[in-house]
Simulated scan of single mutants.
Amino acid sequence: MPEPGSTLELVCFIKGKNVQDLTAGGRVYIMVRTFPQINQISGVSTALDMQGDFDWVLVKATLENFPKDAERVEVSLNVTNLTLGKIYFDEINLTVK
Rank of each mutant, 00 (worst) to 15 (best):
M1H: 07
M1C: 03
M1R: 15
M1T: 03
M1I: 11
E3N: 02
P4C: 01
P4L: 00
G5K: 05
T7L: 00
L8F: 05
L8H: 06
E9P: 01
F13W: 11
F13C: 00
K15S: 15
G16Q: 02
G16E: 08
K17M: 10
N18P: 05
N18A: 12
N18T: 00
Q20H: 08
L22A: 13
A24K: 14
A24L: 14
G26H: 10
G26W: 12
G26M: 07
V28R: 05
I30Q: 08
I30V: 14
M31S: 15
M31R: 15
R33L: 09
F35K: 12
Q37S: 12
Q37F: 05
Q37L: 06
I38G: 08
I41K: 11
I41F: 03
S42D: 12
S42A: 07
G43L: 02
G43F: 00
M50S: 12
M50A: 03
D53Q: 06
D55F: 04
V57A: 04
V59K: 13
A61F: 02
T62K: 13
T62A: 05
L63D: 01
E64Y: 04
N65H: 12
N65I: 01
F66I: 00
P67W: 07
D69P: 10
D69S: 09
D69H: 06
D69I: 04
D69Y: 06
A70H: 08
R72V: 01
R72N: 08
V73R: 06
E74N: 07
V75G: 04
V75S: 00
N78C: 12
V79I: 11
T80V: 14
T80D: 15
T80K: 14
N81D: 15
T83F: 09
L84E: 15
G85N: 09
K86M: 07
I87D: 07
Y88T: 10
Y88D: 12
Y88W: 15
Y88K: 15
F89R: 13
F89D: 10
D90S: 15
E91P: 02
E91S: 13
I92H: 15
N93C: 07
L94Q: 06
T95E: 12
T95D: 13
T95R: 14
T95F: 12
K97M: 04
K97S: 08
K97N: 09
